[in-house]
Design a protein around this nucleic acid. Sequence first.
DNA 1: GGTTGATCCTGTAGTCGCTACAGGATGTAG
DNA 2: CTACATCCTGTAGCGACTACAGGATCAACC
Lengths: 151, 151
Amino acid sequence: MFTIGTLSKSTGVNIETIRYYERVGILPKPPRAASGRRMYDEDTVRRLAFIRHARDLGFGLTDVRALLALQDNPEVPCAEASHIAGDQLAAVEARIGRLEALRAELMRMVGACANGRAADCRVIGALAHPAETGAAGQSAQSELSIISKGS
Amino acid sequence: MFTIGTLSKSTGVNIETIRYYERVGILPKPPRAASGRRMYDEDTVRRLAFIRHARDLGFGLTDVRALLALQDNPEVPCAEASHIAGDQLAAVEARIGRLEALRAELMRMVGACANGRAADCRVIGALAHPAETGAAGQSAQSELSIISKGS
DNA sequence: GGTTGATCCTGTAGTCGCTACAGGATGTAG
DNA sequence: CTACATCCTGTAGCGACTACAGGATCAACC
């Protein structure tokens, strides 16, 4: 049994974030020492590592909750986990597509700039008069919202 | 001169977002009709289109402010605009790299799932025992934070 | 002139996933 | 015994919106 600082160091998750996870119910409330300090065990290290890895993969906390529930109920068919991961894969591929379009447009903008005055700046001109080519200008917005919404 | 609803429709920017932009000072306060309604002109359409396009390209509002200031002061050398766009390009390329690593890991996870029970699920297993291969697990976190921070 | 329904106004609070305090209590080492 | 590290709770802030509530105004039709 060890304290939150140790848990934080051994998982790389911020102390404040651990308490936040407890508050929103993604980590169970741990037992407390007589002084009120949270005391954790190895199981929590594993659970937190699972959460962190899922978060690193871009899963939102809602998805993480679902995946944890599956992990806790091993008799449930895993099609659901596979479905969640498939959705996430599709979202990641969509993001990559959007970002590649953005990259193309940014490269065009940066490449065209001749370091003159702002009046002639191709970067600013490109922003003021977007190119009609490709999908970049059309729904990169949703690319960004996809990201913040998780899967 | 037209109202906020018309501006919203002609730029595709939400009404609430337009008022938000005004509140945070990225759009100037427009003149009001006797009834108190905001009245816009074509210049605002252009300015808002500029903002929207820059946002679509992933620029944060701080960057957008800087780009607008450059546009408003045409005598300033555009090296700064070019620099902002270059930073953004680098950030986009970093995101793409991260996301490609995530994609590889997700494909591996989804591909390995045999639709058995959760106890044997490769997706859950992969999350519980992350692969050591590649950079996916190491700093995709920062990939996500880069996104939310803009450039 | 009256009534409906669309549009507008202000102000506040919610979203997501943290992160950063403030102000205090405890634990550990010298 | 004194530092200093670590912990606690609770609240507020971040970015970039979005979603109300509760009211005023406008345009069109009868």
